[in-house]
Amino acid sequence: MADLSVETTNSLSMNVDRTGALKRFATTDAIFRSLTRICAISVLVILGAIMVSLLEGSWLALGTFGIDFVFDESWNPVTVKFGALAPIYGTIMTSFLAMLLAVPLGLGIAIFLTELCPPIIRRPIGIAIELLAGIPSIIYGIWGLFVFAPFLQKHVQPFLIATFADVPVLNGLFAGPPYGIGMLTASLILVIMILPFIVAITRDVFETVPTVLRESAYGLGCTTWEVTRNVVLPYTRVGVIGGCMLALGRALGETMAVTFVIGNAHRISESILAPGTTISATIANEFAEAVGDVYFSSLIALGFLLFLITFIVLAFARYMLLRLERQAGN
């Protein structure tokens, strides 16, 4: 009897409360929904704000030098004449050289991991590479400065200079005294930095190849290389390109690893052994010491250019990876 009475009062009060509770639920829901929406939109706002603030900061430099800013090599704080050509050249050249070496190496390692590696050590190596992809770039920079650059200066660069001294084009590329630091050193440091990155992505991409495709090719008597060349690579081409572009975006924007070993010289040398500079290295080296509005604004304009370049590369990369995803979905 007592139980029944409790139940009736309960259900009665619930009936009374129901409209109120529903309303409360709806309000909380609306609040939470708009809160999450605002946060999601803040991502867009941040990217927009980066664009706008950099453009605003570089307005003075772009206004003073106009389009010449991009095509002028001089960088002179004394005469207040700034041009971004040398850093742009350095950025693109170091990244290009790095990709030239890192892509074949990375693909090789990815092929090793997916096709050749005994299953027992596949996981440990894969994990090791993913962990290495997370090591901060300043570590690579400090190693490059203290260990790698002196090594190159003593053993590799004199050899390169001597070997190619009589070869027409290459003697220009490998000319000059062995500084140790310079474009080549920066590129090689970039290689080792983006390598884990390329391997991790291409390996993931290779693993999207349906086992059936691979096995049927093996079943026809294909060798491992033929399976890789004619089945795996064509199937994953889009993803591999996307992954490499992503690595390129990283190489282009890389600051610390490069700043240590590039030499920070504002000139374009034919020789890749000569010191140079990149956009990010210039900003990192000179920003805290920049005197004068135009100098300052020029550095921010460099940052703006870097952002534009990487934005385009990264957008392309994401587009390619998206295409692969859709393909895999089908």
Binding site: L47, I50, S53, L252, G253, T255, T310, L314
Partner: peptide, 26 residues
């Protein structure tokens, strides 16, 4: 809106960190 945010977020994910430093400086 979601695919747009995802795309922009992915770009922000690999944007050069020095540019972010410049942005906060500004």
């Amino acid at each position: 809106l979601t695919p747009v945010i995802r795309f922009i977020n992915d770009i922000l994910l690999s944007a050069p960190s020095i540019v972010i430093g410049l942005f906060i400086y500004e």
